[in-house]
């Protein structure tokens, strides 16, 4: 089991964000009837297991002017896709990067990378950087721009 009941309570208490007080982990511990030490140790352990990706701040990239994005998709040779995917994901303008199955004949692409920029021209320029990085391992490519948000709900975990 990756998370136990106490982990889940810590997750539920922090999924809205950390409290803005000088000792936030002690504050959470107080809510849950745990010690500060245990909260810190459990958060650290969840980070080690990959349940927590990072503890950090996410700026609203729209507010900072990074308002354009496109879902770039690539048909990358299977034997090179994992190594190249690592390099694409590490680029600072890519916010999501996944290998997914193709759906032939409709969909030949296996590498998905969400590309962000200040405008569409910048997104297209970044896309060329990815193309250069993939080189001859890439057989076909496309980019899908969103034209409308049809639904957007936060993913929130039930307290278990």
């Amino acid at each position: 089991m990756k998370v136990d009941t106490i982990d889940r309570r810590i997750i539920a208490a922090t999924q809205g964000g950390l409290p803005l007080t000088p000792a936030p982990y002690a504050e959470i511990a107080g809510w849950l009837g745990l010690s500060e030490q245990e909260v810190i140790a459990r958060l650290a352990a969840m980070q080690d297991r990959g349940v927590i990706r990072r503890i950090a701040l996410a700026p609203n990239h729209y507010a900072l002017g990074v308002t354009a994005n496109g879902m770039s998709v690539w048909d990358v040779a299977d034997d090179r896709a994992a190594a190249l995917g690592e390099r694409v994901g590490a680029l600072d303008f890519v916010s999501h990067c996944y290998l997914r199955p193709r759906a032939l004949p409709d969909w030949p692409y296996n590498l998905f990378a969400m590309v962000h920029g200040r405008d569409r021209a910048e997104v297209e320029a970044k896309r060329e950087e990815i193309a250069a990085l993939l080189g001859d391992a890439c057989r076909a490519r496309d980019i899908l721009y969103s034209t409308r948000i049809l639904k957007k709900t936060g993913l929130r975990l039930k307290e278990g």
């Binding site: 950390l18 803005l20 927590i52 990072r54 701040l57 700026p59 609203n60 507010a63």
Partner: peptide
């Protein structure tokens, strides 16, 4: 940080969870 959050310049401040690792 409080001001940046209230102004909507921060979308999240805290742990980022891998929802799949939690069983979803």
């Amino acid at each position: 940080i409080r001001n940046l959050r209230e102004e909507g310049i921060i979308t999240r401040f805290g742990p980022f969870f891998d929802a799949e690792a939690m069983g979803g």
